[in-house]
């Protein structure tokens, strides 16, 4: 088979897919890194944001890329309220229970979407959806190139935010030492909710960048959840540069495994990496101390 000739375009495609994984994982790594919880509702929130972007486009003609500036803040607020109003009180601040609450939330959100919007597949047709950048060796669809650049920008911005702002420092303090942070007067509940809000806003941004080349159904989030967790673990939880590089690496690994093992068996590549990283370097590529 003439597979060598397609390795280059495949790897490039893997990088652009990986950028989407990174975007979804940026939000998750914030939540996972600080709250130390498995947020089961992450995929459902992605799905919700995809619907939001879809309706903004079809009802009001707002382009998904412009919708970033509407949905980012809106989903930040949603995440903040969910954490403050539902997840915190229902979980009593216990890790294992947060997991169950987010599971409950995801059941509610998924089926709300099903009841409200049916399970019909929805897509948007945009004039630039089939524009490509011709690199001679490969054709890169324009929306994927945009997502790639946006992932770099988002990771950079979040990194700056965590490193340079007071809230960013507070978040890192809570992530490292919850009790200590509390003792020096940091409002832990507020920090948690800010984190969840930011994580949810990241998911909304990811949704806006994904919609031009993908589809929405009430189940669409499930396709990204496990990959997002893998990305977070690979990059090291709480690490923005880790999520970015982790996502890109996984995109390429997935592509290469698919290329040489077939798409079905090739899925195993991601999980094999996941298991190996967990066993041999649970702090991830860029992680700090292990939990």
């Amino acid at each position: 088979m003439g597979e060598l000739g397609i390795v280059v375009p495949a790897v490039l495609a893997g990088l652009t897919t990986g950028a989407i994984y990174a975007l979804v994982a940026l939000g998750l790594t914030l939540i996972y890194g600080v709250l130390h919880i498995i947020n089961f509702a992450h995929g459902s929130l992605l799905m919700l944001a995809l619907y939001a972007a879809f309706f903004l486009k079809t009802l009001w003609g707002i382009d998904p890329y412009a919708a970033v500036f509407v949905l980012g803040p809106a989903f930040f607020a949603l995440g903040y309220v969910l954490q403050r109003g539902v997840i915190w009180p229902a979980s009593h601040g216990q890790d294992s229970m947060i997991l169950m609450v987010t599971l409950g939330l995801s059941i509610v959100i998924d089926n709300l979407a099903l009841a409200l919007w049916t399970s019909s597949t929805r897509t948007v047709d945009l004039p630039y959806a089939f524009a490509v950048i011709d690199l001679k060796l490969a054709l890169i669809p324009l929306p994927r190139a945009v997502a790639f650049v946006a992932a770099l920008a988002a990771a950079g911005l979040l990194w700056l935010f965590l490193a340079r702002t007071d809230l960013g420092r507070a978040i890192r303090a809570v992530a490292k030492e919850r009790l200590g942070a509390q003792l020096v007067g940091i409002d832990v509940r507020h920090v948690y909710a800010m984190c969840f809000g930011l994580g949810t806003a990241c998911v909304a941004v990811a949704a806006c960048l994904l919609l031009p080349t993908f589809y929405v159904t009430p189940q669409v989030g499930h396709a990204f959840v496990l990959v997002a967790f893998t990305t977070v673990v690979l990059g090291g939880m709480g690490s923005m540069e880790g999520a970015l590089i982790g996502g890109l690496v996984l995109g390429v690994v997935e592509t290469l495994c698919g290329l040489f093992l077939g798409e079905s068996l090739g899925q195993i590549g991601i999980f094999a990496i996941f298991i190996l990283i967990l066993l041999f370097r649970p702090t991830g590529l860029f992680g700090g101390k292990s939990a």
Binding site: V86, P89, A90, S91, M97, M100, V101, L103, G104, L105, S106, I107, V108, D110, N111, L112, L114, A115, T118, S119, P218
Partner: peptide
């Protein structure tokens, strides 16, 4: 479709609460 599962999810959250 789905309404029963919404209720089930809500009940789960309330139980945890």
């Amino acid at each position: 479709p789905g309404l029963n599962l919404i209720l089930q999810g809500l009940l789960l959250i309330l139980m945890l609460r």
